[in-house]
């Protein structure tokens, strides 16, 4: 088991744990950690035997640049989504459990089957 694999495992486990723990901010942080895990995974996919930065004149043992490019793209995308999720924190949705559906709006959630009976059944 390589150190990188252990890193992936550690970050994944911590990320999953936080994601599963309810609160919105922890969810976001969980996903940040999962993103890190994937980034480490991507770099290990490029074989960590070669660790010299991939410049044109780097000689032998230069790292595979492709996974690095992948990682960069992935980092930026997860950054964007993280920011968006943080933005959602600012909206009313963050206080999910305390907001009751507006009785005036007939489009309420249908998660109370006892209330919503189909006439077919009667």
């Amino acid at each position: 088991m390589t150190a990188a694999a252990l890193l992936v495992g550690l970050l994944t486990a911590a990320g999953v744990f936080l994601v599963l723990r309810g609160s919105q901010l922890r969810l976001i942080i969980g996903f940040i950690l999962l993103g890190h895990a994937v980034n480490v995974l991507l770099l290990s996919a490029g074989v960590l035997r070669w660790r010299v930065p991939a410049f044109a004149d780097g000689g032998l043992d230069r790292a595979d640049p492709l996974p690095q490019a992948f990682t960069l793209t992935a980092i930026v995308i997860s950054f964007g989504i993280t920011i968006y999720l943080l933005g959602l924190l600012r909206t009313g949705g963050a206080e999910a459990s305390v907001i009751e559906p507006d009785p005036a709006d007939d489009d309420g959630p249908t998660n109370r089957p006892t209330e919503v009976r189909d006439r077919d059944e009667t």
């Binding site: 969810l27 959602l88 949705g93 999910a96």
Partner: peptide
């Protein structure tokens, strides 16, 4: 708010 919750 409901949209945002379902959205989450």
């Amino acid at each position: 708010a409901r949209d945002v919750r379902a959205g989450r």
